[in-house]
Structure formats: C-alpha cells, structure tokens
Design a protein around this nucleic acid. Structure first.
Length: 750
RNA sequence: GGGCGGCUAGCUCAGCUGGUUAGAGCACUUGCUUGACAUGCAAGAGGUCACUGGUUCGAGUCCAGUGUCGCCCACCA
C-alpha cells in the first residue's frame, strides 16, 4: 500500500527512448505504420500537427456568407448574368477552391453539372460536380470545394479526382497561390475578400450561423486542416484487440459505465497522426535515403544502411519529426519495467493489477496503453482501470491557472500537511465522480491527523513507570476494543480489496475516532488509573491501549503515511523490551484480522446503552456537567447484570455518576426520577433537580414511544412480510420487537 | 446529432448484489477550563432520497417516462 520510490522514471529517459524505438519498429514491420499525405489538424501557432484528441471543439457563433460564382460562357469568360451561389463560413478558403458541388438530384442545379464556374479573383475554372454528400437543404444547396482546407471537401475531391491547392502557409497566412491576398493572415484575408466581393456585387448575403470550431488544446488557437505528409499508425487492428480485452473482461474499467465510453471510442477510432513538428520529444526513428526509401531502425545509433538500396548511413537523413507525447506515455506500463528486455521486474509486475487515473485521459492515455501494451506484449497491461474523478474548486469549476482557482498543493502541504490533504482527497468520493475541494474538507483532514496525534500523545504519555509483565484478565474495555478492531480490520481489508477507497477511509476514521478515542480511551483511563492495581495490571492495560493505537496506525498508513510512520517510530521507541515489529510501517505487511469476541461486544453494548441513556437524561434535565449523582441500575436479566457489573466503573466515569447501585429487583414504582431505559437495563438517576411531574411525563412519553414502535413492528409481522421475506430479515425484526417489549417492561416496572 | 452522468439534511457528499427507523463531514442549537486533543467533549435538531407511473411482502436502490444541471463524443459547407 505504499509507493516504491526506488523506481523513478521520466518519459525522456533512455529506458523509455529504447521502448519507443522498438515499439515503433515493430509496428512498422507489422505494416501498422504508414507515411502519407493527408489532411491533419494543424496548429498555426504551435506550428505542429496535433491529434484529433488535442483538437477541442467549441460551439461558436460564426457567419454563413453566400457568394456568387459566375458561370463560364462559351468564350471562357464569366457570365455577368449567370452564377451559382455557394454558402461558406470560411470565405478565405475560396482561393483554394477547385470545384463546386451540388446534389445530383437537385432540380435547381441539374443542368449545371458538367459546366464550370469561375473562381473570383483568380479566374480558375471550377467544374460543377454532383455528389450525394451535398445537403440540398443547407445554404444554397451548392458547396464550394476546397480540398486542401476542409476534411469533407478533401474526401469529395478524392471521389472526383479533383486537385487540392494549399493556399495557407504553416502560420495560416495566404501563400503565393492566393494572388493579391498573398501574405495576409487568414482572418485579414477573409475581411479583404469579403470587401472585394461586396464591391463586385457578388456577396449575396450573410447571416449568423452557429458552428463548432476546433481549437488547439495547448494554446487555444483555431486549428487549421492542413494537407501534409505525416506519419500515421493504423489503429483499427490495435483497437479491436483493446476493445475485446474489455468486452471479454480481461481488463475491467471502474466505474463500469466507462466501459461503454471506451468501447464507443475504440469503435470509431481514426488513424493516429503520431508525428509532431516540435523539437522536445522522442525523434521518430526513421531515415530517408536520397532515393526516397525509408528505413526504420530501433538501434540507438540508427541504421547502418538503407534497408532497400543499401546506401550507407552517412547518406541517410533522419526524420526530424518527433512523436506525440502520448506515444511514449502509452508504453509507460511496460517501458518502466524494462521492456523490451525480459527483466525480473517485468516478470514480476507485468501485467499491473490496478491502473489509476482520472477519466479525462481515458482516451489519451488508457486507450493508448491498452493498444500498445497488447501489441507489444500480447497481454493487457493491467487488470483493472480505476478512474477517479477530477478535483474541482469549491463552486465546482475546473481548476485552471488562468482562472486562478487552483489549490497549490505545496501551500496546502505547508499549512495542513500531506496526510491531511490526502485524506481529504480520498474521503467522501466515488470513482468517476468529480469532487469539490473545500477549506472545510481540508480542515477535516487536518483535524483527523491532529486527533490521531493527540491520542498517541496520551497513550505514549500514560505508559506506567514500571512496565512489567502483564498480569490479570483483560477488562471488558480491552476485550471490546480488541474485538472491534478485529471487525474493523476485516472490513477495511475487504474494502481495500474491492477498491472502495472512500468507504475504507470512512470506516477506519470512524473506528479510530469514535470507537477507539471516544469510547475506549476514556475507559482505558479507568483501567490505567484503577486504584490498587498492580504494576502487572497497569502494564497490561497500557499494552492494550498501545496495541490498539499500533493497529490503527497500520490501518491508516495507506491514507496517512507520514503521521502514522512518525507515531509508529515513537511507539517502537517507547516499547521498552516489547520488541514492536516491524520497525517501519511503509514496508510492513498489511495486518490480519484477529478474532471477534461476541460476548464482550454484547456486554459492552448494554453498558454503552446505559451510558448514553444517562448522558441524555442529564442533558435534557439540565444536570450540570460537573455534578456527580447517584445512579441505581436494574438489569433486565442475568446477562445484562454481568454486563453492568463488568462495566460498572466505566459507567461511573463516562456517565459521571456515583455511587452506582446495582439492584436485582425491578422498580418499586416510586421513582419519579427514572430516566434511562434500554433493552438491557433501566437506570434511575438520583437526586436530580427534576420536578416529579416532569419525570412522570417523560416516563409516559418514553413508554408511548415504545408502544408505537411495538405496534408498528407487530403490524409489519402480521403482513405477508412474515411469510414472504427471507428468514434472517424477519428474525431481525422479531428481535427488534422483543427488545422494545423488554424495555417497556423495565420502564413500567412490570 | 448521438451517448453518459448528477439530482439524498442548510452546504459538500457517501449509500455494494432492493430488507423496512437513510448516513458522514461541515454548518446549526444547548451544555462543557471533563489532567490527549476547544483542530476538542457531550447531548440535540434537521431529509415526502427531483417528479410521475410500474415491478415487489418490501424501492434512495430495479424498470419506463418527465424535468433540470453538467460532461463526453461528432467531418455538415
């Protein structure tokens, strides 16, 4: 349950670099890599290709302009009185138009198919073609075709063997193909073109038009489709395997509904444009020879010669493009373990059991790890993908530097410590759901670490001067906390196994705070300070407290690694010959659950009920907290009597009553101060400043409440519930009814 | 245009394969110089589990639909 800091790795290390080269070479050899011309997403600011995933779409309000393209007359000149109108949101791209498309069945344009329109400014002849892809209802029903600058147009152009003319340079300025607009930025050019069309009377209309626009994930610049030669990975076959792994359960994704999201993406995946025109990253290990041959090599020093024509290495030139960073990241689960070598780490730790990350990089990272891991090793890189949600600010906004709503971990660490932060992040969450990180939550974590620290201070500080061999039987409190610990350990272990991290954290928090600190430690004070106790008995009592603390430290170590380790060291130092093991929690094995003690638990349940009842009575009756009042207790039966006897001192201390008189017989009917009643015992608080009438009405109210509960259960047990529901469920309700009836008898002195 | 998720106490959120009196933390009320801790202790108050219908002995939980907020995916000029 701890991080292994001996295995640090950076994706630019040689270990990763070699894995990248080898993986790419194998993909190349398998025919899954190709280099070809295609329309890719280009960021004109970053000056690089980006993948579909890095092209983030945003809804924006644009404009749809309608532009007239005059038709060609028989003599080749534009006809001033005949035109075809096209609709576009990007007028500047018209400089790259090579056709106009209409739907083949569109009556309006059928006669025009086969004729030509003339491109404004440049005078290029544009064939008018018919294509099913054109939506007759949109715009004018006629589309300008710009193959080099629009994905749809590019596909259409391929179908009709139309040329593609690039008119924007790498920074999205009009290039030399753009005639008079050469050198202008794309948006300047747009305005200039519109102005000129307006002058010419060929701008037929403009209207607001909602549209989705792709932006560079890194810098926000509007992405430009750009025709270029790029490296691609053919991902279909990889995706099919990765999809089957999840479908067939070899890898499961938590929460499970993300499996559908994953599947949808894998089913609709496009080839991965994996090259980047940046300088920081792993360079693609491909070499070109003057004859245009490509050699891919996984050797650190590159190939010795061209794989096809044998030209020597010094005549080859390495590709300058680098890999998309997610390519090396996708190899992470295997590259960190030494792949492609068959290292001991790889043999031992691959595949990984659980991969944890936030859902926002399911496609970027998890999907790539699955595809590349399966391709490289033949097995899934992990059995379970645990997707956490994202941390948001107190009002639910995504944290971002520009918004300034980021919680700086380092400042938080200085303020409340790493443990408190970690605890706050783990508690009260569920996989796949975002969480808001608030001051109150962080404070909660801090308070808990503080609580733990103070509990430890108390326990370690109350070690007897003379620590000797333990003597005497364990007290009820000792047996009880031991049993509760056994249960907590068992449940915490199960929850960790089930990856129910938040439930685990809440459980251990509850056990440590409520069971151990609030109840047990208060009782341990009684045992530790018991007058007349021998050194052996005191030593036994202290060891019980210390062992409970130690067990809690172990259970909490995964979520509070630092404070538990620190306290553990002090426990070890204070042990005085008890040889606490191990010396360090971080390398300690997870604790195994001890055995339960049902007798102690049921006895303590009676005692706790009486304490709660008396406390409640005191508060409601306005008894000063400092006042010690006499108490008379009447147990319901022999077992309850034993319980009260064993817990008599705890009762006195925690309920602040003295003396406590334990009686065998029931009430004598003349005890107006009666207050507390439970299924196990009734308790009379003596000398309370309570008016008799108040006490009587309280007693009457309590009795009425009990009768209502009894009636409700009796009614329930009279229905089909008693015959149709499973026996244990019915039995539980019967027991509940019996408890209420017993309590009513005690209360009314019956 | 598809798909997914949230809607539970004043706030932020848990609630696994349906089990009958729905939990936590914070906030709130009332007491506490209780020899570990006021970053604390004790006792409380607070919810028709968004809505409608259905299945069931039993529904926060399962099914159908509605509303609302949010997210993801998507090459319609």
């Amino acid at each position: 349950a701890s991080a292994d800091w001996s295995r640090l790795r950076f994706t630019m290390d040689e270990g990763s670099a070699r894995a990248v080269r080898v993986a790419f070479k194998r993909l190349w050899d398998a025919g899954l890599v190709y280099r070809g011309e295609a329309l890719v997403n280009w960021c004109p600011r970053c000056l690089t290709t980006i993948s579909d995933l890095e092209n983030v779409h945003r809804d924006e309000m644009g404009t749809l302009w309608t532009i007239r393209y005059h038709l060609e007359r028989a003599d080749g000149t534009p006809d001033p009185d005949a035109w075809i109108s096209v609709a576009t949101t990007r007028p500047e791209t018209l400089l790259g138009d090579t056709a106009v498309a209409v739907h083949p069945d569109d009556e309006r344009y059928r006669a025009l198919v086969g004729r030509h329109a003339i491109l404004p400014f440049l005078g290029r002849l544009l064939p008018i073609v018919g294509d099913d892809a054109v939506d007759r209802a949109f715009g004018t029903g006629a589309v300008k075709i710009t193959p080099a600058h629009d994905p749809d147009d590019y596909e259409l152009a391929k179908r009709h063997s139309l040329p593609a003319i690039t008119v924007l340079d790498e920074a999205a300025r009009i290039n030399a193909e753009g005639g008079e607009f050469f050198g202008r930025d794309r948006y300047e050019a747009r305005e200039a073109i519109l102005d000129r069309l307006r002058e010419m009377g060929d701008l037929e209309g403009e209207e607001p038009h909602p549209m989705v626009v792709g932006h560079c994930e890194r810098c926000g610049t509007v992405v430009e489709p750009r025709l270029s030669v790029q490296w691609f990975i053919r991902v279909k076959p990889l995706a099919e395997r990765a999809l089957a792994s999840v479908r067939e359960g070899r890898t499961r994704i938590l929460p499970a509904h993300f499996e559908k999201v994953y599947a949808h993406w894998m089913e609709n995946i496009h080839d991965w444009a994996v090259g980047r025109q940046l300088w920081w990253g792993h360079r693609i290990p491909a070499w070109f020879c003057p004859d245009g041959h490509i050699t891919v090599s996984d050797a650190l020093e590159g190939p010795a010669s061209c794989a096809e024509c044998g030209r020597p290495a010094n005549e080859l030139r390495q590709e300058t493009d680098i890999f998309d960073t997610w390519f090396s990241s996708g190899l992470w689960p295997i590259s960190t373990l030494g792949w492609p070598d068959e290292t001991p780490d790889f043999a031992r730790f691959h595949p990984t059991t659980v991969m944890e990350t936030a859902y926002d990089i399911l496609f970027f990272w998890v999907a790539r790890m699955m595809m590349l891991g399966l391709f490289c090793t033949g097995v899934e890189p992990f059995q379970t993908v645990y997707l956490s949600g994202m941390i948001r600010d107190p009002i639910g906004q995504k944290m971002s530097k520009t918004k300034g709503n980021v919680v700086d971990p380092l400042e938080t660490l200085d303020e409340i410590g790493a443990d408190a932060l970690r605890f706050a992040l783990v508690i009260g969450t569920s996989p796949g759901n975002d969480q808001r990180l608030t001051k109150a939550k962080l404070d909660g974590g801090r308070n808990f670490t503080n609580k733990l620290w103070n509990a430890a201070r108390f326990v370690l500080g109350s070690r007897p001067e003379q620590l000797v061999a333990s003597d005497g039987e364990p007290t009820l409190a000792e047996r009880w906390i031991h049993s509760r610990l056994a249960e907590a350990t068992e449940r915490a272990t199960r929850q960790l196994d089930d990856l129910e991290l938040s439930a685990y954290a809440a459980l251990v928090h509850e056990f440590a705070w409520t069971d151990y600190c609030d109840w047990y430690l208060e009782m341990a004070k009684v045992d530790l300070r018991r007058p007349g106790a021998t050194d052996g008995e005191r030593s036994r009592a202290w060891r019980a407290a210390r062992d409970g603390l130690a067990a809690i430290l172990q259970l909490l170590h995964p979520i509070l690694p630092f404070v538990t380790e620190e306290i553990w060291a002090r426990v070890v130092a204070t042990d005085a010959g008890d040889a606490i093991r191990p010396q360090l929690l971080i390398t300690a094995p997870w604790p195994t659950a001890g055995s339960r003690d049902p007798a102690a638990e049921s006895e303590m349940a009676v005692v706790l009920e009486v304490i709660r009842g008396v406390r409640n009575l005191r508060t409601e009756s306005g008894v000063p907290a400092s006042a010690r009042l006499p108490l008379t207790v009447v147990p319901a039966d022999a077992a309850a009597r034993d319980a009260i006897e064993h817990g008599l001192d705890y009762l006195g201390a925690l309920a602040r009553v003295a003396p406590v008189d334990l009686q065998t017989s029931g009430a004598d009917g003349d005890r107006p101060e009666l207050v507390a009643s439970t299924a196990g015992a009734a308790a009379w608080l003596g000398g309370a400043p309570v008016e008799s009438s108040d006490a009587s009405s309280r007693q009457a109210a309590n009795a009425a409440h009990l009768r209502r509960g009894i009636e409700r259960l009796e009614a329930l047990l009279a229905t089909d519930f008693a015959t149709r529901a499973p026996a244990p469920v019915v039995e539980r309700e019967r027991a509940r009814l019996a408890d209420l009836q017993a309590e009513l008898r005690l209360l009314t002195g019956g």
